[in-house]
Amino acid sequence: MTGPMTGTLLEVSGLEAWYGRIQALFGLDFTVADGGVTTLLGANGAGKTTTLRALCGMIRSAGTARLGGTDLTGRATEDIVRLGVAHVPQGRGTFTAMTVEENLQLGAMTRRDMRAIAEDIERAYAYFPRLAERRRQQAGTLSGGEQQMLAISRAMMLKPRLMLLDEPSFGLAPLIVEELFSILSRLKAEENLSMLIVEQNAALALEIADEAYLIETGRMVMSGPARDIGQDENVRRAYLGY
């Protein structure tokens, strides 16, 4: 799948990150095209989540990460969000005590255009009708799949330039995963949404992605167009179960 490539939206080079004194990333280079989807693949503990956290200023990092012309590194999370980076975190980050609709309102916290916010909430419900039925329900009572839909909708409320998704398929039944990824494809096509998707389900991620990168213990070991990576013998054996 190739989207309309008009240029590079995110350009990361030499990204390093630390948990306390322990270094977890050792100089990653990768890009996300404008309107494109990049996927980061890797085994447990490879550093996928860490990469997204580093981009969002949630942990100490070094190197550069340019979004448009702006370097994200060294900025506070709240400011990176204001630059248009929406993060759907591992574990979904649901505000469990609040209603579905309040979760969506929170996604638009940086915006001031109240009428457009109300319209965008309705648009989210159109993409995910199950959320519409549960708009007054406490978000902590939603199923795992519904919470993932809510997390994606909440991120969309930011009107993001770039969406980071951390294992959106995690812990969900195959049917729900399929539904979720078909909606992500629609968002890519209809809203021209650029995404950086972290996945352990490599087959799924390679289907939606344009570019793919393989991480092992904090280092990039392979990169290329998603189609080529999907054909690679080693990747097929290690990640695609052939």
Binding site: C56, V81, F95, T96, M98, L106, M109
Partner: peptide, 17 residues
């Protein structure tokens, strides 16, 4: 709403700005 979010889930609250 923002105050409630910050108190109940500060990490997620930061991620929505």
């Amino acid at each position: 709403l923002a105050m409630r979010a910050a108190a109940s889930n500060p990490d997620s609250a930061r991620l929505v700005g």
